[in-house]
Computed example of a mutant assay.
Amino acid sequence: MAERPIGTESIDTEPFDTEPFATEHLTAHRRDATLVLTLNRPAARNAFSPSMLVGLHDGWMAADRDDTIRSIVLTGAGGAFCAGMDLKALGGADPEGENHRERLKADPDLHWKAMLRHHRPRKPVIAAVEGPCVAGGTELLQGTDIRVAGTSAVFGLFEVGRGLFPIGGSTVRLPRQIPRTHALEMLLTGRPYSADEALRIGLVGHVVPDGTALERALAIAARVNACGPLAVEAVKASVYDSAELTETEGLAAELARGWPILATEDAREGLRAFAEKREPRYRRA
């Protein structure tokens, strides 16, 4: 499908060819250069099922391969984001998921990559959260880059309250994303957090009226899409790759990654467009 110029589209998304990865519980649409992945199991508050996990995994991989996709928006259907893992569905209660369970057995890391524990997409991922985003939903959220929540969204890691351990990465990632005291309180109390509290502690970046999280996320994605794709991907990679380096190491790594971007045709195009007071036409070159 040919891209339309950024800024000319309506809010409604358009279906596109998702044959490789759309499943019963994961739908995909194309909005210009943004891939919109929707967790689509509203009767179960979008709890993870085999078909959802396989669809997510394949969606992330497809976005990485497709250079016409510049950003990804992740959201949920039916006024919910994700209520975490559905152990019954994963164990075989979902007859539609049998083929997908075979995929999960064949690749023991597939579900972790689907939940962004073992995989970081090279394109920016923007979460649009409405309703519950708890347990595995909050763990999936930690793999996203920019986060928008509706006013009534609810967050939380409930595992310890059930005698369980949140092994989706939260004990490692959460204290690196929000202040440790808040991370530990969320991890150790298992209590729910409102959208406003999630904003205050830095778990999300925007709180918007209910029903408008997707609209705001798509607007942010459109701004990302208007930027140089090589620069966007390099900046994202630099932020994450330097997180565990010393400042000196990180600055050296930044130069090594950033100088080649400054020498690209896209960088020259960006400067020309600025001087000529027009929108840039980036070509990933």
Results as ranks from 00 to 15, higher is better:
M1D: 07
E3D: 13
P5T: 12
E9H: 01
F16N: 02
D17F: 06
E19G: 12
E19P: 02
P20F: 07
P20A: 06
A22H: 07
T23K: 09
R31D: 02
D32F: 10
D32V: 14
D32Y: 09
D32M: 12
L35R: 01
L35A: 03
V36G: 08
T38P: 00
N46D: 05
S49C: 09
M52E: 09
M52L: 08
M52I: 07
L53V: 01
L53F: 05
H57Y: 15
D58S: 07
D58E: 14
G59N: 05
G59K: 06
R70F: 00
I72F: 01
L74S: 00
T75V: 05
A83R: 15
G84C: 00
M85Q: 14
L87E: 14
A89L: 09
A93Y: 15
A93N: 15
G97E: 03
H100S: 12
R101Q: 06
E102D: 14
L104R: 03
K105Y: 08
D109N: 13
H111W: 15
A114V: 00
M115P: 01
R117T: 08
H119D: 06
H119V: 00
H119L: 06
R120H: 15
R120Y: 10
P124A: 09
I126P: 07
A128T: 02
E130P: 06
G131I: 07
G131W: 10
P132D: 14
C133K: 13
C133I: 10
A135D: 14
G136N: 10
T138W: 03
L140D: 11
Q142W: 01
T144C: 11
T144S: 06
T144V: 04
D145N: 09
D145V: 05
D145A: 01
G150R: 07
A153W: 02
F155E: 02
G156C: 02
E159P: 03
R162G: 09
L164K: 03
F165G: 00
I167S: 13
V172R: 13
R173S: 10
Q177S: 10
I178V: 12
P179G: 02
A183L: 04
A183H: 05
A183V: 08
E185D: 14
E185L: 04
G190D: 04
P192M: 02
Y193V: 01
Y193R: 11
S194F: 08
D196Y: 08
R200V: 02
R200N: 05
G202W: 07
G202M: 06
G202R: 15
V208A: 02
D210R: 03
L218W: 00
A219H: 12
A222W: 01
R223E: 07
A226V: 07
L230F: 01
L230D: 12
V232M: 12
V239H: 08
D241S: 14
A243N: 13
T246H: 10
E254G: 13
P260L: 05
L262I: 10
R272E: 14
A273C: 00
A275F: 12
K277N: 11
K277T: 13
R278Y: 06
R278P: 07
R281W: 11
